[in-house]
Nucleic acid binder design. Structure first.
Lengths: 193, 193
DNA sequence: CCACTCCTTACGAACGTTCGTCAGTTTATT
DNA sequence: AATAAACTGACGAACGTTCGTAAGGAGTGG
Protein backbone atom coordinates (compact mmCIF):
# COMPACT_ATOMS: atom_id res chain seq x y z
CA UNK A 1 0.00 0.00 0.00
CA UNK A 2 2.61 2.52 1.07
CA UNK A 3 4.94 1.18 -1.59
CA UNK A 4 2.28 1.89 -4.19
CA UNK A 5 1.84 5.44 -2.96
CA UNK A 6 5.57 5.98 -3.11
CA UNK A 7 5.65 4.73 -6.69
CA UNK A 8 2.74 6.97 -7.59
CA UNK A 9 4.17 10.20 -6.23
CA UNK A 10 7.65 9.32 -7.39
CA UNK A 11 6.26 9.07 -10.91
CA UNK A 12 4.75 12.54 -10.59
CA UNK A 13 7.93 14.12 -9.27
CA UNK A 14 10.27 12.38 -11.68
CA UNK A 15 8.03 13.44 -14.53
CA UNK A 16 7.86 17.05 -13.39
CA UNK A 17 11.43 17.60 -12.17
CA UNK A 18 13.55 14.86 -13.69
CA UNK A 19 15.76 12.43 -11.83
CA UNK A 20 18.13 14.96 -10.30
CA UNK A 21 15.41 17.52 -9.66
CA UNK A 22 13.15 15.15 -7.75
CA UNK A 23 14.15 14.72 -4.10
CA UNK A 24 13.21 11.84 -1.86
CA UNK A 25 12.15 14.42 0.73
CA UNK A 26 9.57 15.91 -1.62
CA UNK A 27 8.26 12.53 -2.68
CA UNK A 28 7.97 11.15 0.83
CA UNK A 29 6.29 14.27 2.18
CA UNK A 30 3.50 13.83 -0.35
CA UNK A 31 3.12 10.22 0.73
CA UNK A 32 2.94 11.40 4.34
CA UNK A 33 6.15 9.82 5.59
CA UNK A 34 9.77 10.83 6.10
CA UNK A 35 12.35 10.21 3.44
CA UNK A 36 14.13 7.54 5.48
CA UNK A 37 11.03 5.37 5.39
CA UNK A 38 11.35 4.99 1.65
CA UNK A 39 14.28 2.70 2.42
CA UNK A 40 11.89 0.18 3.93
CA UNK A 41 10.61 -0.44 0.41
CA UNK A 42 13.45 0.44 -1.93
CA UNK A 43 17.18 0.11 -1.59
CA UNK A 44 17.74 3.66 -2.75
CA UNK A 45 16.80 6.35 -5.20
CA UNK A 46 18.04 4.36 -8.18
CA UNK A 47 15.97 1.31 -7.33
CA UNK A 48 12.87 3.43 -6.83
CA UNK A 49 13.45 5.16 -10.12
CA UNK A 50 13.99 1.94 -12.02
CA UNK A 51 10.90 0.40 -10.44
CA UNK A 52 8.83 3.35 -11.62
CA UNK A 53 10.44 3.16 -15.04
CA UNK A 54 9.66 -0.53 -15.30
CA UNK A 55 6.02 0.06 -14.31
CA UNK A 56 5.62 2.77 -16.88
CA UNK A 57 7.28 0.81 -19.67
CA UNK A 58 5.03 -2.19 -19.05
CA UNK A 59 1.87 -0.07 -19.03
CA UNK A 60 3.01 1.76 -22.12
CA UNK A 61 3.52 -1.42 -24.07
CA UNK A 62 0.27 -2.84 -22.74
CA UNK A 63 -1.60 0.17 -24.04
CA UNK A 64 -0.21 -0.27 -27.53
CA UNK A 65 -0.88 -4.00 -27.59
CA UNK A 66 -4.41 -3.59 -26.27
CA UNK A 67 -5.31 -0.92 -28.77
CA UNK A 68 -3.97 -2.87 -31.71
CA UNK A 69 -5.76 -5.99 -30.52
CA UNK A 70 -9.10 -4.19 -30.28
CA UNK A 71 -8.69 -2.39 -33.60
CA UNK A 72 -7.59 -5.26 -35.77
CA UNK A 73 -10.83 -5.17 -37.74
CA UNK A 74 -10.80 -1.48 -38.57
CA UNK A 75 -9.55 -0.03 -41.81
CA UNK A 76 -6.00 1.27 -41.74
CA UNK A 77 -7.27 4.83 -41.83
CA UNK A 78 -9.53 4.43 -38.81
CA UNK A 79 -7.02 2.35 -36.95
CA UNK A 80 -4.18 4.85 -37.29
CA UNK A 81 -6.28 7.92 -36.63
CA UNK A 82 -7.82 6.21 -33.63
CA UNK A 83 -4.37 5.31 -32.41
CA UNK A 84 -3.27 8.93 -32.52
CA UNK A 85 -6.31 10.09 -30.63
CA UNK A 86 -6.29 7.35 -28.02
CA UNK A 87 -2.65 8.06 -27.33
CA UNK A 88 -3.40 11.76 -27.06
CA UNK A 89 -6.16 11.10 -24.54
CA UNK A 90 -3.95 8.79 -22.57
CA UNK A 91 -1.25 11.44 -22.57
CA UNK A 92 -3.64 13.94 -21.04
CA UNK A 93 -4.92 11.42 -18.50
CA UNK A 94 -1.70 9.83 -17.25
CA UNK A 95 1.86 10.88 -16.53
CA UNK A 96 3.17 7.65 -18.03
CA UNK A 97 3.95 8.81 -21.53
CA UNK A 98 5.44 12.11 -20.43
CA UNK A 99 7.71 10.30 -17.99
CA UNK A 100 8.70 7.78 -20.60
CA UNK A 101 9.52 10.44 -23.16
CA UNK A 102 11.52 12.51 -20.69
CA UNK A 103 13.64 9.58 -19.61
CA UNK A 104 14.06 8.25 -23.13
CA UNK A 105 15.30 11.62 -24.37
CA UNK A 106 17.26 12.72 -21.32
CA UNK A 107 18.08 9.76 -19.10
CA UNK A 108 20.07 10.30 -15.91
CA UNK A 109 23.71 9.81 -16.86
CA UNK A 110 24.57 6.83 -14.69
CA UNK A 111 21.52 4.83 -15.85
CA UNK A 112 21.77 5.86 -19.45
CA UNK A 113 22.71 2.56 -21.03
CA UNK A 114 20.10 0.59 -19.14
CA UNK A 115 17.34 3.01 -20.10
CA UNK A 116 18.36 3.51 -23.71
CA UNK A 117 18.54 -0.24 -24.28
CA UNK A 118 15.10 -0.73 -22.82
CA UNK A 119 13.66 2.09 -24.92
CA UNK A 120 15.17 0.71 -28.09
CA UNK A 121 13.63 -2.69 -27.47
CA UNK A 122 10.34 -0.97 -26.70
CA UNK A 123 10.50 1.02 -29.92
CA UNK A 124 11.50 -1.98 -32.02
CA UNK A 125 8.57 -3.96 -30.71
CA UNK A 126 6.13 -1.12 -31.35
CA UNK A 127 7.34 -0.70 -34.92
CA UNK A 128 7.09 -4.45 -35.43
CA UNK A 129 3.49 -4.52 -34.28
CA UNK A 130 2.57 -1.57 -36.44
CA UNK A 131 4.29 -2.87 -39.54
CA UNK A 132 2.23 -6.05 -39.56
CA UNK A 133 -0.88 -3.89 -39.77
CA UNK A 134 0.55 -1.86 -42.61
CA UNK A 135 1.49 -5.09 -44.30
CA UNK A 136 -2.01 -6.49 -44.28
CA UNK A 137 -3.51 -3.12 -45.20
CA UNK A 138 -1.19 -2.92 -48.18
CA UNK A 139 -2.30 -6.32 -49.38
CA UNK A 140 -5.91 -5.17 -49.12
CA UNK A 141 -5.14 -2.19 -51.32
CA UNK A 142 -5.69 0.44 -48.64
CA UNK A 143 -2.35 2.06 -49.33
CA UNK A 144 -0.97 3.64 -52.46
CA UNK A 145 1.48 1.36 -54.17
CA UNK A 146 4.09 4.15 -54.40
CA UNK A 147 4.42 4.11 -50.61
CA UNK A 148 6.27 1.15 -49.15
CA UNK A 149 5.26 -0.41 -45.87
CA UNK A 150 8.51 0.64 -44.21
CA UNK A 151 8.11 4.21 -45.30
CA UNK A 152 4.49 4.42 -44.24
CA UNK A 153 5.14 3.00 -40.79
CA UNK A 154 8.32 4.98 -40.24
CA UNK A 155 6.53 8.18 -41.23
CA UNK A 156 3.67 7.31 -38.91
CA UNK A 157 5.85 6.77 -35.88
CA UNK A 158 7.60 10.03 -36.67
CA UNK A 159 4.20 11.68 -36.86
CA UNK A 160 3.29 10.20 -33.49
CA UNK A 161 6.49 11.54 -31.95
CA UNK A 162 5.81 14.93 -33.44
CA UNK A 163 2.42 14.98 -31.77
CA UNK A 164 3.94 13.95 -28.45
CA UNK A 165 6.46 16.72 -28.69
CA UNK A 166 3.80 19.30 -29.30
CA UNK A 167 1.95 18.08 -26.23
CA UNK A 168 5.09 18.44 -24.14
CA UNK A 169 4.82 22.16 -24.75
CA UNK A 170 1.46 21.99 -23.05
CA UNK A 171 -0.39 24.14 -25.52
CA UNK A 172 -3.41 21.92 -26.14
CA UNK A 173 -4.95 24.14 -28.81
CA UNK A 174 -1.82 24.14 -30.91
CA UNK A 175 -1.22 20.43 -30.49
CA UNK A 176 -4.75 19.58 -31.65
CA UNK A 177 -4.26 21.79 -34.67
CA UNK A 178 -1.01 20.06 -35.50
CA UNK A 179 -2.44 16.62 -34.99
CA UNK A 180 -5.21 17.44 -37.42
CA UNK A 181 -2.84 18.92 -40.00
CA UNK A 182 -0.27 16.15 -39.67
CA UNK A 183 -2.83 13.44 -40.04
CA UNK A 184 -4.55 15.15 -42.95
CA UNK A 185 -1.32 15.47 -44.93
CA UNK A 186 -0.07 12.04 -43.89
CA UNK A 187 -3.16 10.24 -45.02
CA UNK A 188 -3.27 12.17 -48.27
CA UNK A 189 0.24 10.90 -48.89
CA UNK A 190 -0.44 7.29 -47.99
CA UNK A 191 -3.98 6.46 -49.04
CA UNK A 192 -4.88 4.73 -52.27
CA UNK A 193 -6.57 7.06 -54.78
CA UNK B 1 37.53 35.29 -23.18
CA UNK B 2 37.05 33.37 -19.96
CA UNK B 3 33.42 34.39 -19.96
CA UNK B 4 33.04 32.86 -23.39
CA UNK B 5 34.65 29.63 -22.28
CA UNK B 6 32.32 29.48 -19.30
CA UNK B 7 29.33 29.95 -21.60
CA UNK B 8 30.62 27.27 -23.93
CA UNK B 9 31.14 24.56 -21.33
CA UNK B 10 28.01 25.55 -19.46
CA UNK B 11 26.07 24.91 -22.66
CA UNK B 12 27.60 21.46 -22.94
CA UNK B 13 26.85 20.52 -19.35
CA UNK B 14 23.34 21.95 -19.30
CA UNK B 15 22.61 20.09 -22.51
CA UNK B 16 23.97 16.82 -21.22
CA UNK B 17 22.78 16.88 -17.62
CA UNK B 18 20.02 19.45 -17.43
CA UNK B 19 19.86 22.43 -15.10
CA UNK B 20 19.86 20.52 -11.83
CA UNK B 21 22.29 17.90 -13.05
CA UNK B 22 24.93 20.39 -14.19
CA UNK B 23 27.15 21.68 -11.39
CA UNK B 24 29.22 24.84 -11.40
CA UNK B 25 32.14 22.76 -10.16
CA UNK B 26 32.07 20.55 -13.24
CA UNK B 27 31.69 23.49 -15.59
CA UNK B 28 34.47 25.53 -14.04
CA UNK B 29 36.88 22.61 -13.91
CA UNK B 30 36.54 22.20 -17.67
CA UNK B 31 37.25 25.88 -18.10
CA UNK B 32 40.30 25.47 -15.91
CA UNK B 33 39.20 27.65 -13.01
CA UNK B 34 37.55 27.19 -9.62
CA UNK B 35 33.81 27.42 -9.37
CA UNK B 36 33.93 30.62 -7.30
CA UNK B 37 35.62 32.42 -10.17
CA UNK B 38 32.46 32.09 -12.22
CA UNK B 39 31.04 34.79 -9.98
CA UNK B 40 33.43 37.28 -11.50
CA UNK B 41 31.35 37.03 -14.68
CA UNK B 42 27.88 35.92 -13.60
CA UNK B 43 25.83 36.70 -10.51
CA UNK B 44 24.95 33.05 -10.04
CA UNK B 45 23.84 29.84 -11.66
CA UNK B 46 20.54 31.27 -12.83
CA UNK B 47 22.16 34.21 -14.58
CA UNK B 48 24.67 31.93 -16.29
CA UNK B 49 21.90 29.62 -17.40
CA UNK B 50 19.74 32.41 -18.74
CA UNK B 51 22.71 33.93 -20.56
CA UNK B 52 23.35 30.60 -22.27
CA UNK B 53 19.68 30.23 -23.04
CA UNK B 54 19.59 33.69 -24.57
CA UNK B 55 22.65 32.96 -26.70
CA UNK B 56 21.17 29.75 -27.97
CA UNK B 57 17.77 31.26 -28.72
CA UNK B 58 19.33 34.06 -30.72
CA UNK B 59 21.53 31.71 -32.73
CA UNK B 60 18.59 29.40 -33.30
CA UNK B 61 16.44 32.16 -34.70
CA UNK B 62 19.33 33.50 -36.74
CA UNK B 63 19.80 30.10 -38.35
CA UNK B 64 16.17 29.96 -39.42
CA UNK B 65 16.17 33.52 -40.74
CA UNK B 66 19.42 33.03 -42.62
CA UNK B 67 18.32 29.82 -44.25
CA UNK B 68 15.00 31.26 -45.35
CA UNK B 69 16.72 34.36 -46.67
CA UNK B 70 19.16 32.34 -48.77
CA UNK B 71 16.51 29.95 -50.04
CA UNK B 72 13.86 32.42 -51.06
CA UNK B 73 14.34 31.62 -54.73
CA UNK B 74 14.05 27.85 -54.45
CA UNK B 75 10.91 25.87 -55.10
CA UNK B 76 8.90 24.98 -52.01
CA UNK B 77 9.96 21.36 -52.35
CA UNK B 78 13.67 22.14 -52.40
CA UNK B 79 13.34 24.81 -49.76
CA UNK B 80 11.56 22.58 -47.25
CA UNK B 81 13.69 19.53 -47.87
CA UNK B 82 16.81 21.64 -47.64
CA UNK B 83 15.54 23.11 -44.41
CA UNK B 84 15.12 19.68 -42.88
CA UNK B 85 18.59 18.63 -43.89
CA UNK B 86 20.34 21.83 -42.89
CA UNK B 87 18.69 21.63 -39.50
CA UNK B 88 19.73 18.03 -39.17
CA UNK B 89 23.33 18.89 -39.97
CA UNK B 90 23.27 21.78 -37.54
CA UNK B 91 21.86 19.45 -34.91
CA UNK B 92 24.79 17.10 -35.33
CA UNK B 93 27.30 19.95 -35.35
CA UNK B 94 26.11 22.08 -32.43
CA UNK B 95 24.57 21.56 -29.02
CA UNK B 96 22.26 24.53 -29.55
CA UNK B 97 19.18 22.74 -30.78
CA UNK B 98 19.46 19.91 -28.29
CA UNK B 99 19.78 22.41 -25.45
CA UNK B 100 16.89 24.43 -26.74
CA UNK B 101 14.64 21.40 -27.06
CA UNK B 102 15.55 20.09 -23.62
CA UNK B 103 14.79 23.38 -21.93
CA UNK B 104 11.65 24.00 -23.96
CA UNK B 105 10.26 20.59 -23.03
CA UNK B 106 11.54 20.35 -19.48
CA UNK B 107 12.46 23.76 -18.12
CA UNK B 108 13.79 24.09 -14.57
CA UNK B 109 10.77 24.73 -12.36
CA UNK B 110 11.64 28.17 -11.03
CA UNK B 111 12.40 29.56 -14.50
CA UNK B 112 9.53 27.84 -16.23
CA UNK B 113 7.37 30.81 -17.10
CA UNK B 114 10.26 32.87 -18.45
CA UNK B 115 11.46 30.05 -20.68
CA UNK B 116 8.06 28.91 -21.89
CA UNK B 117 7.12 32.47 -22.85
CA UNK B 118 10.33 32.90 -24.78
CA UNK B 119 9.87 29.59 -26.57
CA UNK B 120 6.32 30.43 -27.54
CA UNK B 121 7.40 33.70 -29.07
CA UNK B 122 10.22 31.87 -30.85
CA UNK B 123 7.82 29.28 -32.20
CA UNK B 124 5.26 31.86 -33.29
CA UNK B 125 7.88 33.77 -35.19
CA UNK B 126 9.19 30.64 -36.89
CA UNK B 127 5.71 29.61 -37.98
CA UNK B 128 5.08 33.14 -39.24
CA UNK B 129 8.22 33.09 -41.39
CA UNK B 130 7.39 29.66 -42.79
CA UNK B 131 3.78 30.49 -43.55
CA UNK B 132 4.74 33.38 -45.80
CA UNK B 133 6.73 30.92 -47.91
CA UNK B 134 3.84 28.51 -48.08
CA UNK B 135 1.60 31.41 -48.99
CA UNK B 136 3.66 32.44 -52.00
CA UNK B 137 4.21 28.82 -53.02
CA UNK B 138 0.47 28.24 -52.95
CA UNK B 139 -0.11 31.21 -55.22
CA UNK B 140 2.44 29.77 -57.65
CA UNK B 141 0.53 26.51 -57.76
CA UNK B 142 3.23 24.43 -56.07
CA UNK B 143 0.79 23.05 -53.52
CA UNK B 144 -2.33 21.00 -54.00
CA UNK B 145 -5.42 23.12 -53.57
CA UNK B 146 -6.94 20.63 -51.11
CA UNK B 147 -4.21 21.46 -48.61
CA UNK B 148 -4.50 24.82 -46.91
CA UNK B 149 -1.48 26.90 -46.07
CA UNK B 150 -2.10 26.55 -42.34
CA UNK B 151 -2.34 22.78 -42.58
CA UNK B 152 0.75 22.45 -44.72
CA UNK B 153 2.88 24.60 -42.45
CA UNK B 154 1.54 23.10 -39.23
CA UNK B 155 2.21 19.61 -40.58
CA UNK B 156 5.70 20.64 -41.61
CA UNK B 157 6.65 21.99 -38.21
CA UNK B 158 5.28 18.82 -36.66
CA UNK B 159 7.41 16.84 -39.09
CA UNK B 160 10.44 18.88 -38.09
CA UNK B 161 9.79 18.21 -34.42
CA UNK B 162 9.38 14.53 -35.15
CA UNK B 163 12.80 14.48 -36.78
CA UNK B 164 14.34 16.33 -33.84
CA UNK B 165 12.87 13.82 -31.45
CA UNK B 166 14.29 10.93 -33.35
CA UNK B 167 17.70 12.56 -33.22
CA UNK B 168 17.42 12.97 -29.47
CA UNK B 169 17.50 9.18 -29.26
CA UNK B 170 20.87 9.38 -30.93
CA UNK B 171 20.31 6.56 -33.39
CA UNK B 172 21.46 8.28 -36.55
CA UNK B 173 20.55 5.43 -38.88
CA UNK B 174 16.99 5.31 -37.69
CA UNK B 175 16.58 9.08 -37.74
CA UNK B 176 17.77 9.31 -41.33
CA UNK B 177 15.34 6.60 -42.31
CA UNK B 178 12.52 8.45 -40.61
CA UNK B 179 13.47 11.76 -42.13
CA UNK B 180 13.37 10.19 -45.57
CA UNK B 181 10.05 8.47 -44.94
CA UNK B 182 8.42 11.49 -43.31
CA UNK B 183 9.47 13.80 -46.08
CA UNK B 184 8.42 11.37 -48.81
CA UNK B 185 4.92 10.97 -47.39
CA UNK B 186 4.62 14.65 -46.51
CA UNK B 187 5.49 15.88 -49.95
CA UNK B 188 3.19 13.31 -51.58
CA UNK B 189 0.41 14.78 -49.45
CA UNK B 190 1.18 18.41 -50.18
CA UNK B 191 2.48 18.66 -53.74
CA UNK B 192 0.35 19.60 -56.70
CA UNK B 193 -0.32 16.67 -59.06
C1' DC C 1 -6.45 -13.49 29.22
C1' DC C 2 -1.89 -12.43 29.68
C1' DA C 3 2.95 -12.39 28.49
C1' DC C 4 6.38 -13.16 25.27
C1' DT C 5 8.69 -12.97 20.92
C1' DC C 6 8.94 -11.75 16.10
C1' DC C 7 8.36 -8.83 12.33
C1' DT C 8 7.02 -4.80 10.01
C1' DT C 9 7.02 0.04 9.62
C1' DA C 10 7.97 4.58 10.81
C1' DC C 11 11.03 8.05 12.91
C1' DG C 12 14.84 11.04 15.01
C1' DA C 13 19.49 11.84 14.65
C1' DA C 14 23.33 11.91 12.32
C1' DC C 15 26.50 10.68 8.50
C1' DG C 16 29.52 12.33 4.61
C1' DT C 17 29.14 14.73 0.43
C1' DT C 18 27.93 18.12 -2.73
C1' DC C 19 25.62 22.15 -3.84
C1' DG C 20 25.52 27.36 -4.75
C1' DT C 21 27.24 31.39 -2.70
C1' DC C 22 29.90 35.09 -0.16
C1' DA C 23 34.09 37.37 1.73
C1' DG C 24 38.76 38.35 1.73
C1' DT C 25 43.35 37.92 -0.40
C1' DT C 26 46.80 37.15 -3.78
C1' DT C 27 48.32 37.37 -8.54
C1' DA C 28 48.83 39.37 -12.99
C1' DT C 29 48.15 43.07 -16.43
C1' DT C 30 48.17 47.60 -17.92
C1' DA D 1 49.62 52.20 -8.45
C1' DA D 2 45.32 50.54 -10.04
C1' DT D 3 42.22 47.29 -11.73
C1' DA D 4 40.58 43.00 -13.03
C1' DA D 5 40.65 38.11 -12.34
C1' DA D 6 41.97 34.21 -10.13
C1' DC D 7 42.69 32.17 -5.80
C1' DT D 8 41.72 30.18 -0.63
C1' DG D 9 38.57 29.48 2.85
C1' DA D 10 34.32 29.06 4.71
C1' DC D 11 29.22 29.19 4.87
C1' DG D 12 24.39 27.20 5.36
C1' DA D 13 21.44 24.24 3.00
C1' DA D 14 20.16 20.26 0.79
C1' DC D 15 21.16 15.84 -0.87
C1' DG D 16 21.01 10.49 -0.45
C1' DT D 17 21.99 7.26 2.96
C1' DT D 18 22.72 4.60 7.45
C1' DC D 19 21.92 3.52 12.22
C1' DG D 20 19.51 2.51 16.28
C1' DT D 21 15.08 2.58 18.26
C1' DA D 22 10.23 2.85 19.38
C1' DA D 23 5.36 1.64 18.27
C1' DG D 24 2.09 -1.62 16.72
C1' DG D 25 0.23 -6.07 15.12
C1' DA D 26 0.40 -11.20 14.53
C1' DG D 27 1.16 -15.41 16.29
C1' DT D 28 2.40 -18.62 20.12
C1' DG D 29 2.71 -20.84 24.67
C1' DG D 30 1.45 -20.74 29.34
Amino acid sequence: MTAEKIRKFALIHFTQNGYEGASLADISSEVGIKKQSIYNYFKGKDELFLAVFQDVAVREMLFVEDYLKCSSLLTLENMLYGFLNEYRKRYEREDDTKFFLRMAFFPPGHLRREIVDYCNRHLDRTVLLLESFFESAASKGEMHSDVSVERASAAFTALLDGVFVEMLYGDMERSLKRLDASWYVYWRGVKNS
